[in-house]
Amino acid sequence: MLEKLATLDRRWLFLVMAIAIIVPLLVPVSLPFEASPPVRATYDAVEALRPGQTVLLSIDYDPAARPEVEPWARAVLRHLLRRRVKIVMMTLWDKAPPIVRSLINEIVLGEYNQRRGYFAPDQPGGRLAQDYAPYRYGEDYVFLGYKDGKEIVIAGMGQNLRQMFPVAEAEREGGDKIPVARIPVLSGISSLRDFALILEASAGFPGAKEYVQQVVTRYRLRFAAATTAVSVTDLSPYYPEQMLGLIGGMRGSAEYEQLVEAPGLGTSGLNVLTFGQIFVILAIVLGNVIFFLQRRLRPRSSPGAGGGVG
């Protein structure tokens, strides 16, 4: 029996994992949680923006990292619209432009400009300003597009944004690009230093680490980013000196969604994460129980397969 358990076909584990993921998706259970200081600090930084200030939102992730980082990108975009700040979007990832387009279409054009969903008039107060007006492309927000060159682009934007992005994407896909000199939202913006806040949804390289190394420390910029959970340990040394906020993975996204009162994919994802994580912990415990029982029965047996040698 023990032997059978020790050499358990991993597909059984896969099956239980699948159940642990699918069930919470179908039957949402919400466990209470508190926003951690780095997430709250990001929220406070956005909350402190005055209407009309300009913010850079860099969307640097691909479809693979979408579930982890996009919930925050959506939540923070709603938050920025709520603050009525001007938004400049861009990306350093070649697979991100369709993602940015869908964010604009769904949240800026779909929700805010149509007064639907999060911005519906029947939602709790404070989401739509007294002097509500739809966001206009080029005047209130703009998408600069994708630029190849990775960290070189980041360093270049620290010196001269227009040299890196001489033209911006058209309002509609496939339209003619617009010279940045004709974009009102960029008037008065010549480099990264001119943004009131720089936000980034970062799923790896080039990402938040490169921003900190290339420009944030050098020009003392106000910078916050959301990253995948695996990169949090990489970035945590930068908080709070270089990065004023850090949103880590699904958990961080869920906390941000809670702060802006927009429970979405992050919150439901956190439930999935909770049950998945509990299952991993149980798998570790089970593995160890089997290991100790085996050792008790055969005290001099050699350890099983796996296990690293440094």
């Binding site: 239980v16 994992m17 693979a64 299952f279 991993v280 798998a283 593995g287 160890n288 099983g304 796996g306």
Partner: peptide, 20 residues
């Protein structure tokens, strides 16, 4: 492909994470 990680982490955790 990325999501496969969840399953592989479970099986790796069960097999390799032991208090030797």
């Amino acid at each position: 492909m990325f999501a496969l990680l969840a399953f592989f982490i479970a099986s790796a955790a069960f097999r390799a994470f032991r208090a030797r």
